[in-house]
Design a protein around this nucleic acid. Structure first.
Lengths: 202, 202, 202, 202
DNA sequence: AGTTAATCGAGACGGTACGTCAGGTCTTGGC
DNA sequence: GCCAAGACCTGACGTACCGTCTCGATTAACT
């Protein structure tokens, strides 16, 4: 007698979608991604970690990349708000420092790398990455625009370029150079961005 | 009789390594990568496109990523030399414009994206990417150092950060935002970098 | 507006078992079995053809084989009565001819083959087959016993064996050799059975 | 260190088909069929029992039924030779007794039932069953023809029917009635067949 | 000149993951 | 309580690639 009856971990919801299963899948995806990397991220592994049938994953997501993307987007939600420190320099520094801080965990960086990799081959993941990063860029761009109103950013400055110089460093260090994203890096980047914004050369 | 015997496209080299086969593999890898993306890039596909046995690939490269990396490095060789225009601003602009120009072909960008994706999961590809980009950074850093000697770059400037701001934009636009890498973008980036380098704010 | 709302083909019976649903299931089972063979005979297919929920099938039958068996038994009911022609030879010939005639439809033969196949793997179907064939054997055996009383069957004859020689041919031709089960075959079999019954050798 | 290197159970044959693998698959199929029945006979189970990759099975057989059929045919080979006892009655009795004896093992009967079931749904298995049984029928028919020459079988007898009466009993008892196939049954069947063959009634 | 040795194209092999399909269980909401 | 509907977990299916192995051929280097 194996006394295996203590199994109903999750409530069945009958003919309606089980949202608990959905969340379990997304959580499991993130966990597997962080702990085992992308090679260990098989649909089977997700299904097993989420205690879910494989079909349940295929029923709701069109591809593995879509699951990864949604799992990641779920974690990145509500991070890096714009803070009002009274000065443009302060606001920018806070924003960049906070953005970097969100990646201080190696697991998070690893997951982000996998997401970027997935986006190169999976259209669904690519869409999520596109939307997510566009929204982040818009936020930072608004901050620069605010700086322009205050006179801290030259009217001749290319705000889009400034934004991509900032996020470029963040992603480049995450994906390519594996350079640090600590407070010092944030400070240095902020200083150079301020200089770049202030005076447009020629 | 099917007269199919007119097949020996490539000379057999006996017990010595057949360099023609090696090149066929690298060419085929790049072609498949560009034309079919990373999902179509199977060892079988490379072998078939190169008219080569699979074992011949495994004999000379430790992993698929290594093949991709070498195929890519082969194409990127000898691009973006440092030109001496007489002024730091001119040199920087040339460097960045040339760097961007190397990616004006969509096929090249696609291949680069696949390389970056491969580097996230394949140690051999990662190593090649690491080495290649480190070398590029060193080149650009030397250019900034030369600018510092001329007084165009502030002694307080963080040269490493400036370098990554430049390459960050290049990779960010390639991998994430898919923004343009044309002459206008190069000019804007150059201008902002010059400003960032010239005056270190606090 | 697709005007698809005109769907209630069948009356809902509320909390009492809906016998119309039961019959729809059995009919659908037989139809699917005959038309699409056993590979097309999925529970889903039956449910869809009967316009019934899957659960309704599982509520009333323990297995697919049980449904098949009941669907078949329903069709085979009240066939092949014993006729009294006045002579044993005439009675036997009628019985065999009628038995064969019940299988002149290819759909019926196909369904019977599927039933036999189901009985090899499903205990419920096996039970139905066992009961049904035992009843048929008993009927034929009674006919032989009657022949023994009349002196047309030797007292030394093995009635059980004679019965299985008859049904053996019927099933063997249905399942294995696909030989004809027409009037000529019935006549030949009858003649040989009469000879076999009349004189027990040694 | 797991010392797992003692693995090469079977010799690799390179680019040529490995006949040892083929035989291992057929053996494993028969074993699984006999031991676990048809529900346990999955391709995975065969592959695992044969220590073979699933693809190796799919490479050489078009369907599961084809594997079953070949595995069975392999076992049934060279059984039931025609023996020359000097008399037709003796030869027939030997043949039937030997045929029955080949099924005295319950595992063999079970496997045969599964083969018959497979033949109802799989064209490849059906073909093998058709060929195999046709060959057996031809052998027995030749025996009856020889009896006709000796005068033990009436010229008016329907040899084909006699053959199917014999094999009908064998298969009917195996598939349907599960009656005994022992020496007594063989003797009874032989006696009735002799009577049926000797005198054609009417 | 004959032998040895390494490469090559080819393709079978033991595996792993894929995405699909069917089975049998469960719950909802309507009747 | 019965019913249609459909989500759920499970597990087999057949396919695609992986990386390894062996073959027979070809040629270069060594005897």
């Amino acid at each position: 007698m194996t006394a295996d009856h203590a199994k109903p971990r999750r409530q069945h919801t009958g003919r309606r979608r089980n949202d608990a299963a959905r969340e379990a899948i997304l959580d499991a995806t993130f966990d597997v991604l962080r702990d085992r990397g992308v090679d260990g991220l098989t649909i089977d592994a997700i299904a097993e970690a989420a205690a879910v049938g494989r079909q349940t994953i295929y029923r709701w997501w069109p591809s593995k990349g879509a699951v990864i993307a949604e799992a990641m987007a779920r974690r990145a939600r509500a991070i890096v708000p714009v803070r009002d420190s009274g000065s443009f320099a302060g606001d920018l520094k806070s924003f960049i420092t906070d953005s970097f801080a969100g990646l201080e965990d190696e697991g998070m960086r690893r997951a982000l790398r996998q997401l970027a990799a997935a986006a190169q081959r999976d259209e669904h993941a690519a869409q999520v990455v596109r939307d997510f990063t566009a929204q982040r860029r818009a936020t930072l761009r608004a901050l620069f625009a605010q700086g322009a109103e205050r006179g801290d950013v030259s009217p001749a400055a290319d705000l889009g370029m400034l934004v991509e110089m900032a996020y470029g460093v963040l992603w480049y260090r995450t994906l390519i150079s594996h350079g640090p994203l600590d407070a010092g890096a944030a400070e240095s980047l902020t200083a150079h961005l301020l200089a770049a914004a202030r005076r447009q050369v020629r």
